[in-house]
Nucleic acid binder design. Structure first.
Length: 572
RNA sequence: CGGGGCGUAGCGUAGUGGCUAGCGCGCCUGCUUUGGGAGCAGGAGACCGCGGGUUCGAGUCCCGCCGCCCCGACCA
């Protein structure tokens, strides 16, 4: 039993000045966590209970799916990360240190390398696969800007797991198993979440989905269809393209004098056409892994920004850099660029998927002060390809069913990822196949932010009085508040003992010098879903009050029935 | 790394170049009080982020640095 009289806890009356988001304010105010350094937090007793409860659910479900728990060190040698190139790739993103001999170490940001090497050293036969291993461990990333308390820290608790399979079908099965397990975990955690398609990014590999906890404080933006179940991170989102038209039916191209109209705004105002009728052409420079660069021009409707992250995802492994060097390309007229000349200049041109065959645009005429109208795709220019390059907006159309898309924000609390052979290739992870020849292993990688999940749940479940935990992870099943002296003291003690004997985790406010008001405020701030008030009604007619934290409703029951009533409510 | 805001006691804050840096909460002692952050009395607790400068005098003005928060860039 936890007793408030001795619990290591100090609640704060005011929000800390350095906190912005609700979970940060409340977790600090209610005495769950304290900041030690930027992005680095200590867990106090109540907070640690919640964290452990989340961890327990994650572990139970991972074990249920047949994954096996292991534990790697957080302090790691440089070599494995050197072998996969990530010692360099991570740049400033990892904490590096040296031992007394000057050897390089790092604090693990994630453990693909170590898991791969462990399987390599232990297993050597196809008969050993498939296998899924996981750990729940502290991770370190030197984030450029930690923010929002424990929502984005530099030290955090993460469950990471890795599947090892012989072939793509096996990988798909392992991926699906993890995905199903994640659904069970997040359901049990009481989270409002969305599964969205994600880009694979620099990790390589193919299929990848993120589990986002829905909250306005989230840093990820995703689109979701209002009718079907399509959902995607904005970086991976696609939209339904307008129908293609027959270029032959469009009027002839016409060049116009449009002096001093180097921007979409000035052009649209000069011609009195909507920005969406113009075709904006953005030049970027691509840097390939071998260092070679090439130009890429991206055409998007003029009322849209180019989403560089989406472009980057589409041109991977090349990197996108800004282009400023107009002097080197006299054919490119700044502010008056149109796609009509790009083929001749041998510059690669791609268009956003909203730009379709037969569509007619106002765009640059490739001469200072001139634009052209009725520039028709498929007649006046032909792009090398299409990509979802323009920002997605509320009201865009779902690529699956054509209904409206909605934009929302979320926090990434889980990620499932068909990694493929990237790490197996880099570290030569093979097993002997049935034909006696080595078979390269294919991997999946799967993460759940355990400490982040605590903050995400807090972010979704609070009111003006404080936190409201789901039963599954509440620091206690029930909080017994003793309000008043005399027989309430003893009544509260014996009720708490009874509840504990019935198997509940009990937090008892047995502080003698605090007024009932303070006890109520603390109970509501701490946020157990059910609390019981043992107060004046005990003396008056032998009853206590059972309150539901979320709804605020309360009912009065005889103290003799209280244990049974509370147990029923908690177990419901 | 760029832009903005801010550093005064454990927390929240006031402070016009001028006396011993003020208030609320919290904390300690005593009395009183006990169904919604009680009351009275007494007390402890501050290198005013750090360093330099201007001045008879700096929490306050100037310069530099450090740190924090927010936005952006960055971020499996």
């Amino acid at each position: 039993m936890l007793r408030m009289s001795t619990l290591f806890l100090r609640t704060l009356r005011a929000d800390p000045a350095d906190a912005e988001v609700p979970s940060h304010k409340l977790l600090v105010r209610a005495g769950y966590v304290r900041r030690v350094a930027p992005g680095i937090y200590s867990w106090l007793p109540l907070g640690l209970k919640v964290l452990r409860n989340v961890e327990h659910i994650v572990r139970e479900e991972m074990d249920r799916m047949g994954a096996q728990e292991v534990q790697f060190p957080a302090l790691l040698p440089r070599e494995p990360y050197e072998a996969t190139g990530r010692w360099t790739e991570y740049g400033d993103g990892i904490f590096r240190l040296k031992d007394r001999k000057g050897n390089d170490y790092l604090l693990g940001p994630t453990h693909e390398e170590l898991f791969t090497l462990m399987v390599k050293s232990e297993y050597s036969s196809y008969k050993d696969l498939p296998v899924s291993l996981y750990q729940i461990q502290t991770k370190y990333r030197d984030e450029a800007r930690p923010r929002a308390g424990i929502l984005r820290g530099r030290e955090f608790l993460m469950k990471d797991s890795y599947s090892f399979d012989l072939d793509d079908d096996g990988l798909k099965q392992s991926y699906q198993d993890h995905r199903d397990t994640y659904v069970r975990i997040f359901e049990r955690l009481g989270l409002d979440y969305k599964i969205v398609s994600a880009v694979s990014g620099s990790m390589g590999g193919s299929a990848s989905e993120e589990f986002l906890a829905v909250t306005p404080s989230g840093e990820d933006t995703y689109v979701a269809c209002t009718h079907c179940d399509y959902a995607a991170n904005v970086e991976a989102a696609t939209v339904m393209a307008p129908p293609a038209l027959d270029p032959a039916t469009q009027p002839a191209l016409e060049v116009m004098d449009t002096p001093d109209t180097p921007t979409i705004d000035t052009l649209a105002a000069f011609l009195d056409v909507p920005a969406s009728a113009t075709l904006k052409n953005v030049i970027v420079q691509l840097r390939n892994p071998d260092g070679r660069t090439e130009l890429l021009v991206i055409g998007v409707p003029g009322d849209r920004e180019v989403d560089l992250k989406a472009v980057e995802a589409n041109v991977f492994p090349a990197e996108v850099e800004p282009f400023e060097d107009f002097a080197r390309y006299p054919g490119l007229v700044r502010g008056y660029l149109g796609p009509q000349v790009l083929a001749d200049l041998e510059i690669r041109y791609v268009v956003d998927s909203r730009v379709t065959t037969g569509s007619a645009w106002v765009t640059g005429a490739n001469e200072q002060g001139k634009h052209a109208r009725n520039v028709v795709m498929g007649r006046d220019f032909t792009p090398a390809g299409t990509m979802p390059a323009a920002e997605v907006r509320d009201g865009d159309l779902c690529p699956v069913c054509g209904n409206l898309l909605e934009i929302n924000r979320g926090i990434e609390i889980g990620h499932v990822f068909q990694l493929g052979k990237k790490f197996a290739d880099a570290l030569s992870l093979d097993v002997l196949g049935p034909e006696g020849k080595p078979v390269r292993v294919t991997m999946g990688s799967y993460g759940i932010g355990v400490s982040r999940a605590v903050a995400a749940i807090a972010e979704q479940s609070y009111d003006e009085r404080g936190l409201i935990w789901p039963r599954s992870i509440s620091p206690a099943d029930v909080h017994v508040v003793i309000a008043g002296q005399g027989e309430q003291q003893e009544g509260g003690e014996s009720l708490a003992a009874g509840l504990e004997a019935a198997g509940l985790r009990v937090l008892l406010d047995d502080r003698k010098k605090v007024s009932p008001g303070v006890a109520f405020k603390d109970a509501e701030l701490i946020g157990t879903p059910t609390y019981v008030v043992v107060g004046k009604s005990l003396a008056a007619d032998g009853t206590v009050e059972i309150r539901d934290r979320r709804s605020g409703s309360s009912r009065t029951v005889s103290v003799a029935d209280a244990v049974a009533e509370v147990v029923a409510e908690v177990r419901s």
